[in-house]
Write a protein that binds this DNA or RNA. Structure first.
Lengths: 138, 138
DNA sequence: GCTCGATGCTTGAGAACATCAAACAATACG
DNA sequence: CGTATTGTTTGATGTTCTCAAGCATCGAGC
């Protein structure tokens, strides 16, 4: 019977978990010749198209950064820009079909994470899902 | 009554959680004028000293990368190199006291994550701790 | 309509980070 | 020993990052 972990312990474990997940993600992305930043961008866009600015906010980087990243993704036809119909300053970025396949493939290839999740029962997966949703809400 | 999430849904949520955590971490690190890579390195070293090679492995990057990152951290006295006593090729990197304080401060300042964890009861925190340990073992 | 401040994106300069190949020293092992 | 292997560094090249500046567009008010 484990005692309650301190918040610091939980932060430490979170850091470790994130770091493991990130390493897994990065090497799966590298298999597709994608950098971590490029793949992270695809991952964010998997949920929904987004403007340059909101992408930058989600990825915690400067907006000027996104220009280059999206340029390179667009050159490979993984993503496309579209001027917003309601505000001509805004450019909405969306995944192409190829881009969608790419990020799905990356997630399928994250073996460490997949193996880890396989160790959970259905109830445990449901509970993990619930807890993560509480801690990291949309 | 939530149904069991599919593995893909769980991967998606994990990606979102990691991304939120990462953004939080990056901006807390920036407050201390540390880049994400530098702070991540400190985070790994918080557990235990490590050689250049094992750092590179944990951070999923080339060993030659670490040279520059550790150089810059050492210049700011957050970390120090020490030639291994058993193998003179190996350099072990360890946090200085300043470095330890830096990473602890960063974790304390991760407001989004802290706020999220505060939403959990003690039992839930214990359970999250257990589940993460299963999915991402040491 | 017009001006003016704010907003969204891009560009350019300079630092950090990433990968790869190649070098070097030290070790391991036949 | 001699030879292969390992751990770290260096150098070249491309990507990412931050910051300041630029341009176009929007929105609120006159």
């Amino acid at each position: 019977m484990p005692s309650t972990p301190s918040k610091a312990q939980l932060m430490e474990l979170l850091a470790h978990s994130v770091s493991t997940h990130y390493a897994d993600f990065t090497s799966a992305a590298a298999d597709l010749s994608l950098t971590a930043s490029q793949a992270k961008t695809l991952s964010v866009l998997r949920r929904a198209p987004a403007s340059m600015r909101s992408l930058a906010h989600t990825l915690a980087c400067d907006a000027s950064n996104m220009t280059g990243i999206i340029d390179r993704l667009e050159k490979r036809d993984l993503v496309h820009r579209e001027v917003s119909s309601t505000d001509r300053r805004v450019k909405n970025v969306a995944l192409t079909e190829t881009g969608e396949k790419a990020i799905d493939t990356i997630r399928e290839r994250m073996e460490q994470t997949q193996t880890g999740l396989d160790k959970l029962s259905e109830e445990e997966r449901t509970e993990l899902f619930r807890l993560l949703t509480v801690v990291f809400p949309h």
